[in-house]
Design a binder for these strands. Sequence first.
DNA 1: CGACCTATTGAATTCTATCAATTCTCGTGG
DNA 2: CCACGAGAATTGATAGAATTCAATAGGTCG
Lengths: 289, 289
Amino acid sequence: MGREQSSATPKGPRRHTPPAEATRNLRLAADFHAAYPPELTGDGVLVPGPFGLKLERYALQGGRPPRSIRSLMAHKRTFEPGVQVMQQGDAGGVAYIIEQGWTFSSSVLRNGSRQILDVQVPGDVAGLQSLPVPTAANDVTAITKVHAFEIQLDAVMDAISSDADLAAFIFWLAARQNDVASVRIIDIGRRTSVERVAHFILELATRLRLAGIGTDSGFPCPLTQYLLGDALGLTSVHVNRVLRDLRTSGLAHHQRGWISLLNASELSAVAGFSSAYLRGTGTGCTDAM
Amino acid sequence: MGREQSSATPKGPRRHTPPAEATRNLRLAADFHAAYPPELTGDGVLVPGPFGLKLERYALQGGRPPRSIRSLMAHKRTFEPGVQVMQQGDAGGVAYIIEQGWTFSSSVLRNGSRQILDVQVPGDVAGLQSLPVPTAANDVTAITKVHAFEIQLDAVMDAISSDADLAAFIFWLAARQNDVASVRIIDIGRRTSVERVAHFILELATRLRLAGIGTDSGFPCPLTQYLLGDALGLTSVHVNRVLRDLRTSGLAHHQRGWISLLNASELSAVAGFSSAYLRGTGTGCTDAM
DNA sequence: CGACCTATTGAATTCTATCAATTCTCGTGG
DNA sequence: CCACGAGAATTGATAGAATTCAATAGGTCG
């Protein structure tokens, strides 16, 4: 019966038609980011804050930190929760270094379903792939209140022409981002829903730790079950199911904008998680063989 | 019943356990690429062949073609079908500009299932995200016999230091690749199997046309149904069904390494396909709203 | 009067249940 | 490697109740 349905001309949206979800209001506390300290400046680093930590990590891995990066971080902007930072089709040539708060990049399909491509946490760059093109490739939306540095393509090109280290760093950033996208493809393509959610939780935990946020036992997470579903190619209902399973089996707990890692090692085992791909240092973008 | 099964500690691989698929031999003709002409050099461009066409397109979109690119394309290599060009965990710092033939990048999970992250056709760069890191992030395998230029990180860094245009071009390449990855995430996350296959076929058709390969009515495609499944997060069995549906509804036909576009406009409608994301020029990475 | 705490209320989110169907698994043959 | 069929199961669609949250109004105490 089901086979017959998979005709080449689907009679109607058989899969995912949540037109309301895509436009649902985000009602998260405007000062969500108050949950963690804004300034985590290392000593003697080029840039303060979570992006500075990323730069530091890059340097520790043998990259030469670009001296001109500071000059790019001049124009600070703030976005309220739910605001479209960037929209598909907008003029490109812009990106944002997230300093505080969370954003996500996404695309909406004809039938109204939405796919979240990536989530940006402090220290991440939103819209990096829209920087070198005339029109933005996808939407970027603020989940919480967001503080970010606006980066203009012109300025980047100017800086690159006299600072090859900056070019190398941006290339590294883009490659890291591609690793994250690769893992998302693997998640959605070849992992069960439980593995997928578990893996995503651990990815977030690791990325936030690298930004100086959260502890071994948990981290702040403003993602609703709707957003989690849209990020993982699941429905919010199924995310709810999976989250309940993780909770009852004592692995993780999602509650009021906070994810508790109750049993991180078991969770990693379930997810087949290895943090290597996030550090840009290890054995690849999936679990070790 | 199904609900109870989705426990946090799956009793066994409930989904996708094709250990044989990952290591299945590729039996494609070694001279597959003979199907299309090797040399498609434009006049007066910096570089001959499909990669030159990509460079040309970059220039047409306002990018300044890097003069130093030619010096990077010195070391030509050949790979036989099925050969691992690059393996997860290998030393990084290398990438390949594909001149002839097809490759794919992939990752293998614990349970033996494999996810293909992207397919590289002539003019594409394989392993770009492994170039700026010490260890390769994923596997790259030759599908057909492949001729490629081996690019070393050292040479790239040297060239960048005196040619900012090259840095900008590489950044553009990485961003384009990210767009393709984004579309794959959308495919697998939010499209039905039919939409997914149809979209992938059209993506391949467009990418190949941009490389000077194929016509409006079809293109060479050495991907087996196993490979298609691994690329699209489906099983080969299901790909077979979908392909049959597309065939019987007169939209596309896959046969002996060749895909015929029987009704491209209807196929595009089914897939919700827009080629904008591949040209780096348009309105984004999904269908227009 | 102002600061602070306590109901109230409406909306957004979470949670649960039931049914449907897309997709997977297994098996067999070409 | 392709093709096809039968049965199983993960996941989606839909609907409704329970819960949490944010904002507001009202009341108490200093």
